[in-house]
């Protein structure tokens, strides 16, 4: 009796391991290339000014975000706040964490007097670690 040439074919089965390897490889690829957007306590309707000479400092969660919109309204960590309340908050920060990094987000059309007012309040409270955020393709 001739040997059945297809005998071996009876236990033919799909080998899953290469497939799984493949999927893992793709998964790793996407994990590496995808950038997760962080919650930066942003004010969404801000139209950040563009600067060509700004430093590339990646966003940082521990930063304190103060924003001023085009109408001159002030936001503290993304929440609307009055100037009087902001000055109170700064008092607290001065005591608790005077070296805290502070990020100032402004709109292109933010009234300049308001910007000066906030900067002056920060400097008067001796909070010197302040940066102004501009639009950056990589982070925005």
């Amino acid at each position: 009796m001739p040997k059945n040439a297809y005998e071996q074919d009876e236990d033919v089965a799909l080998n899953m391991s290469p497939l799984i390897d493949c999927v893992f490889l793709l998964l790793i690829f996407f994990l590496v290339t995808t950038m997760l957007k962080k919650d930066r306590k942003e004010v969404e309707h801000l139209n950040l000014p563009i600067s060509r000479s700004s430093l590339e400092v990646p966003p940082d969660d521990s930063m304190l975000a103060i924003a001023i919109d085009a109408e001159g309204e002030v936001y503290y960590e993304g929440e609307e706040i009055t100037v009087g309340q902001l000055l109170e908050e700064l008092k607290v920060i001065e005591v608790n964490d005077p070296d805290r990094r502070i990020r100032l987000d402004t709109d292109e059309n933010t009234p300049f007097f308001r910007f000066v007012e906030i900067l002056d309040a920060l400097s008067f409270r001796n909070l010197r670690n302040v940066g102004v955020r501009t639009y950056h393709e990589k982070f925005d």
Partner: peptide, 22 residues
Amino acid sequence: TPLFVALLISTAGATILSVLLY
């Protein structure tokens, strides 16, 4: 071996995707 073939396919796929994304 199938593993090599799969590796080849996925590398090619990832490369093409990378180039396209770039």
